[in-house]
């Protein structure tokens, strides 16, 4: 008896139900309801996953701190500061004319990640080099922005973790890092204030 009920559930032949075309259609309609009910349960289960997954994404208070304003009026040429942007260091560097010309001298073809200093700065403000302080190799903070730190053999930044060396345009010159230090989205809201993010 129980066996028979199970067989009916899968809609295959069963003499108890197979007594005419009308009943046959009835079986199909009834199967449809069962399938629809199970599908609804499946959709409901998937919908529950939405909040469970998205709760791990950055929350509103984290997103609210996704832009940072930095006062650059105190940075003299040749100096750099470390600021915090999205809980990561960002380097703001006021390049000297010598550093700019050094960066411009390098032939693009010799670079691993070819970019000119002009492409990495804002027009008319090529002396302001603003990059993330996150090595593109594995995410350590390179040295060179703080006072008295080693700037590496190309006068830019030097990452002590695995020896990546960046030049005065923060372009990768030597070592394992694949890319130049990332330039975040930013704009000058005035001559002395930069808004990053």
């Amino acid at each position: 008896m129980a066996d028979e009920a199970i067989v009916n559930a899968s809609g295959t032949d069963s003499p108890a139900v197979h007594d005419g075309a009308g009943a046959d259609e009835g079986v199909r309609r009834r199967d449809f309801i069962n399938i629809a009910a199970v599908s609804f349960a499946g959709v409901g289960g998937l919908a529950v996953l939405v909040p469970l997954v998205s709760q791990m994404a950055p929350s509103a208070d984290v997103l609210a701190e996704s832009s940072t304003e930095i006062d650059i009026s105190q940075i003299a040429p040749g100096q750099a500061i470390k600021a915090v942007f999205r809980k990561q260091p960002v380097f703001v560097r006021n390049l000297t004319p010598v550093e700019i010309s050094e960066a411009d001298k390098v032939p693009l073809s010799s670079l691993r990640d070819p970019q000119t200093l002009e492409e990495r700065t804002k027009p008319g403000k090529t002396n302001w080099l603003i990059t993330m302080g996150v090595c593109t190799h594995l995410g350590c903070v390179p040295l060179g922005a703080g006072e008295g730190e080693v700037k590496g053999e190309f006068g830019g930044y030097f990452c002590p973790c695995h020896g990546s060396v960046y030049d005065t345009a923060a372009r990768i010159r030597k070592g394992p890092a694949p890319k130049n230090l990332e330039v975040p989205v930013y704009e000058f809201t005035s001559d002395t204030v930069v808004k990053i993010g």
């Binding site: 469970l52 709760q55 994404a57 929350s59 509103a60 984290v62």
Partner: peptide, 13 residues
């Protein structure tokens, strides 16, 4: 309160 206000769907959870 952080869960209730800022976490995505936190109020519901």
């Amino acid at each position: 309160e952080h869960i209730m206000r800022d976490v995505n769907w936190g109020w519901m959870l």
